[in-house]
């Protein structure tokens, strides 16, 4: 038998009429049921991320160092994916860096009233880190048409009295006005180790 080319033809095994007892014949069928699901989790960040969050409170960005290659990962996850080893050493990286690439979200996101489209989410690589992560790039006089790969940016922190153990301490990143950074390799994201961590 060949492939069923007509989706409106049900498979033979399912084509029989469903019989409903007479007693139920007049009842309106139930089309759907809604089951609210609520589960509570008390999440913990783990060792490395909690160090990162504590540093954040001091307006510092820290990264993990791969014990084999020296590659620096921000944010730290406690493991180096290039060696499969637990990281033990952390280093401070700069709160300045460059844009590797970016997205401009031009539609409102449900449940995120704090984000006002159009806004720029960019892969930002802090100086001293080999990896980037996605961050908001903004600023009062930011011209969206001016955002570009290689653009230099710096972190804009919350006021000191509002700092918490939270990644949200960085409100966004804004252009520094410096000359563009040279992007090591346009096919690749992040600085390779031999490209130097500076």
């Amino acid at each position: 038998m060949g492939y069923n080319q007509d989706p409106s033809v049900p498979p033979a095994a399912l084509s029989g009429a469903v019989s409903i007892p007479d007693a139920l014949a007049d009842l309106e069928p139930v089309r759907s049921v809604t089951t609210p699901l609520r589960m509570e989790y008390t999440a913990t960040p783990g060792a490395s991320l909690s160090k990162y969050l504590r540093a954040m409170k001091e307006k510092r960005i820290i990264g993990d160092v791969c014990p084999d290659t020296g590659m620096v990962f921000v944010p730290p996850r406690g493991v180096s994916p290039v060696s499969g080893k637990r990281t033990t050493e952390t280093v401070d990286v700069a709160d300045e860096g460059y844009i590797e690439s970016f997205n401009i979200t031009r539609i409102p996101i449900k449940g995120r009233d704090d984000l006002h489209p159009p806004y720029v989410s960019a892969w930002v690589v802090p100086d001293g880190s080999n990896t980037g992560s996605i961050a908001l790039v903004a600023g009062d006089d930011l011209d969206l048409d001016d955002v570009r790969i290689g653009m230099r940016v710096k972190a804009v922190w919350k006021p000191d009295d509002e700092l918490e153990e939270s990644a949200a301490n960085i409100l966004h990143w804004e252009p520094t006005g410096e000359p563009d950074a040279e992007v090591p390799d346009m096919m690749r994201i992040g600085r390779p180790t031999d490209g130097g961590a500076q």
Binding site: G46, A47, S48, R77, G78
Partner: peptide
């Protein structure tokens, strides 16, 4: 005090 990947590595 450790994430899943931290204790699995």
């Amino acid at each position: 005090n450790e994430s899943e990947v931290e204790f699995m590595v």
